[in-house]
Design a protein around this nucleic acid. Sequence first.
DNA 1: GAGTTTGAAACT
DNA 2: CAGTTTCAAACTC
Length: 797
Amino acid sequence: MNEKHVEERKRERASTRKGRGSGVAYGAFFPLRWLFKKRGKQPLPILLLDKMDRTPEAKRIAAATSSSISSSPAVQESPFSNFLSNLSPLNTATTASYTQTLLGTNLPTPPVVFTSPHINLQRETSFLERDDIVEAGSEVYKECNTNIVQVQNPSFAEVQLCSPSGCVDEYLADPVEVDSTCSADLRSQRTNEVPRLLHSGFAPGKESNTEVCDIMFGSPENEAVLLSDQAEKDLPLSSLEMSQAAINQRDGKKTEELSRFIFEKVKESDVNACLVSRAQNCGENAAKLQRAGCQYDEKNASSQSRHSNERKKRVQKGLVKEGGQNERGIRRHLQFEAAKAYKFTILGNSESPCSLTHDATNSRSPSILTNLKSLASSHFDNRASSSPQDVSCDTSQFPSSPYESFTSAQIGVNSTTSAPIHSGIGLHLNRISRSTSLSSDIFSSKKSTRYLRMPEQMLEHGSNNIATNSNTMKPPCHSMLVDQEAALCEVGMSASQEADEVEELNQLSPKRKRRKDAYMSEGCKRCNCRRSKCLKLYCECFAAGVYCVDSCACVNCYNKPEFEDTVLDIRQQIEARNPLAFTPKVVDNAIDSSPNFMEEQDLTTPSSARHKRGCNCKKSKCLKRYCECFQAKVGCSSACRCEGCKNTFGVTPEPVYDRAKRWEAHPAEKLDNVKGAIACIKAPAFSSASSSNSAKISQAQLPSSQLQPSGAHYDIPYDDTPEILKETSNPTKVVKASSPNQKRVSPPQSRSRLRERSPTGLRSGRKFVLQAMPSFPPLTPHRNSKEGTNEIENDDK
DNA sequence: GAGTTTGAAACT
DNA sequence: CAGTTTCAAACTC
């Protein structure tokens, strides 16, 4: 942190600024900025927290940061981009309007990464009736309940968020998926053509580019025809019942090819141009789709159509302040991971568990499916409670940027169902991102659960199964570009939950009660940061991946949409230090374990969840909210290093730390413990997880075979192999396997000896765990390796 | 509401 | 990387 860096950053942004105004959809290029960063073409800006203030200069810097996303001149001037810029003129009011809004050179660039309602409002609207989606969703819900296994690709099994206000859905739902669903065959054909083009070489010629682009993103003309035909044939809902297998096959192939293709395109710096073209096509599709959607409305949903049209008019007139009262307390989730996922895909990182291939293979993870199931359940529960008039669905909210598409993707309906996926650029970047971060979609669907209105609730309902799942499932990619605020704040709680809330509220201290009350009334979490600028993990909002809201009492807050770039930078820096920094603190054992284990676990108990890193309490005895485990209403696990733990949600007979110390003092006991652990492992079934003490024991002694690789087992303590555990001759190893406190347990010589004996075994095993987890993919290759290193180090500890 | 305690996060 | 500092929430008075 020094002045030099500040100046460099200013200059860098000033120079970048000059390149703006190219008429390129801003959002579409944003990921490339990340790409260039990662590829070393642009140094990572060093954010100077200490230098930041509310001065105009600082704001200017922040604004400049936000605006420094335009494509490079080189890209813009490439033959390919020139060609594409002449293609697919924006001839619809929709596109023109939106493009104009975004491309105004003098306008502050709206936050794209954090999909903003404002952006949405600027778009012209066309509505599919929400009831249609809801109705379709009901069908899917049945499907999910009866045969969840059919959902082979969780990344597409997104849950339509259905807030009472409906505002989120309205602006994010995208009916193109209907198109994509119905045109699966056509798209498959296109997909099949991609390899041919790729193998035959890609020349930046006009025809080839056009062809590839159309194949890549789908011909807008064809899609439009399909849409129209579909609408005329009155097919929209029937399309929802299309074979999931066919869809997945198609998507799987396509995304894989797309990722490859995009990677090639990035190399040629022409992806921007291609995206431009597709952004334009997207606009065309929007108009066509809009027409198609209107036809359908007229035929099938006259009453809803009326409401839709009324709302459309209001929106067009700018009279609808989306959400109305319902947007109070609304905030936007930070959406970094989506960008990273996209970037990752662009980079074609084969190491990433986020890779498409990985996605395809891991998408069948039973735990994922289970989570999906619960999510679907909760989602549709919410959906069922939505009032009809609030379920209109704006079909024209095409994302014009990848980020917006991410948003839609995340909130969009399960593609198995009516999954709104965008044609054109949005659709495909979206799909890539979704494929790349398959779990994130599902996990981020936490917004669809009534327990997860806000992060704090996620913790406070940690004892609840669904909440636990959601906690667990809040992924590193948890905060994908989502405009989920309304949902987070609006989704209601059940009566019992509310009663619990009230009871809990009554037990709180007055101050805490006020805070809690404010929270409950606001429906959103509020921070009170004074010095961190809400850009550190100290800030609960920031740590939760949400923007601060006006009701926050924070001072000098930078965790706001207008500082999105700053937030992104900071977040990236934090994740560089700790890739799991933004992962949920509480994970569900169910996710960490095999289906068998899940069956044997009582998932309704707090013990089914545990704190990811474990607490480190010394004085609170894990009996106060200082303790993160206690706060999350989960039992302390073997990951904890607490002293004198009396966690009522799950207390080991003997705190691990104490036990570790005892072992250290009396090594002879180690062997006994080892034998006991092995005996426990060999036990046919785990004891009831509802036992408060079982959490630590079962987790610590769980054989790795049951922990991997299906789940998001990114935690450290339990991933040693059974072989290691079986080596009872070396008690230290068993201590390692069963306790995260090995750092304090293992004598240095033992550790070194362990390394000597198994120089690679543990490392590979650790990496396997990390790479096998679909839910929390490393964000960058660097981080990937770093994380692996960290895990190894932790292992050594 | 002010002050203290606590433990996580950040820093050195 | 262990120790220290910073930070904000939790808690007490």
